[in-house]
Simulated assay, not measured.
Amino acid sequence: MSSRAEILALLRENARYSAEDMARQTDLDPAEVEDVIAELEADGVIAGYQAIIDYRELEDERVRALVELNVTLDRETSYADIAERLAKFPEVEGLRLVSGDYDFDMEVEGDSMSEVSRFISEKVAPVPEITQTVTHYVMESYKERGIVFGDGDDDDRLSVSP
């Protein structure tokens, strides 16, 4: 595995590892680790760093929805054009062109279900190329970006014995 791949794997595991922590886990010294990270950032490979938040643990829990979008393209409009337009909205947390039964998979966050619904109906659905939206509200998150939430001891289902 290359030093770039090793550093990326470690950063995906924990972006708060220090250069010293990563040097201990690789064959690099801390200065080399910092150089590799700086190169990855300059090349745009590392686009940013974010905390993974378990909103259930906060008083002001956010409403999240996954939205399927179908589009019909015309001669002047590409998928990239539609993506650029949608990605500008602050409510849009994630947007991907996907294969399958729909074209885009969009993640949306808001303070309430009505706020998310209003955003979809007033800002997304009116985009001329969007022909259909299907909104799925996230009821519970168990794992985000490789991080499992909770300690697993909250299973309150009753045991059934034959």
Rank of each mutant, 00 (worst) to 15 (best):
P128F: 13
E61M: 03
S78W: 08
V45A: 07
M113W: 10
M139K: 11
G146N: 09
P30V: 07
S2I: 06
Y142K: 12
E84C: 10
S78H: 11
S3G: 13
S3Y: 06
R24T: 07
Y102V: 05
I37L: 07
E76Y: 06
R12N: 14
P128V: 04
A5G: 08
S117G: 10
R56I: 02
T26F: 02
R75W: 15
A65W: 00
A47C: 05
L97F: 05
V36R: 00
Y55E: 12
F149Y: 06
T131W: 03
E93Y: 11
A125P: 01
R62P: 02
H136N: 12
I120S: 04
E84G: 07
L158P: 03
E39G: 08
K88T: 12
A47L: 05
S3V: 08
E61K: 09
G152W: 06
R96W: 14
V45N: 11
D21I: 04
D151P: 01
Y17T: 04
M1E: 10
T72C: 11
L73K: 12
I52E: 01
G110N: 09
P126H: 03
V148C: 04
G152H: 10
F89L: 01
N14D: 15
D155R: 11
A23L: 08
S114V: 11
L73N: 09
S18Q: 05
L28I: 12
D156F: 04
T131D: 10
E115R: 04
T133P: 00
K143T: 01
Y137L: 09
T131V: 11
G152I: 04
S18V: 00
L28T: 07
N14H: 08
S3Q: 15
E93K: 15
D111S: 13
R4K: 13
L158A: 05
M1D: 10
L158I: 15
D156I: 07
V36A: 01
V116D: 02
A83T: 14
D27Q: 15
Y55N: 10
D29I: 14
T77P: 00
Y79E: 06
D21Q: 11
T131F: 03
L8F: 06
A23E: 10
E109S: 14
P128T: 13
G150Y: 01
V160W: 14
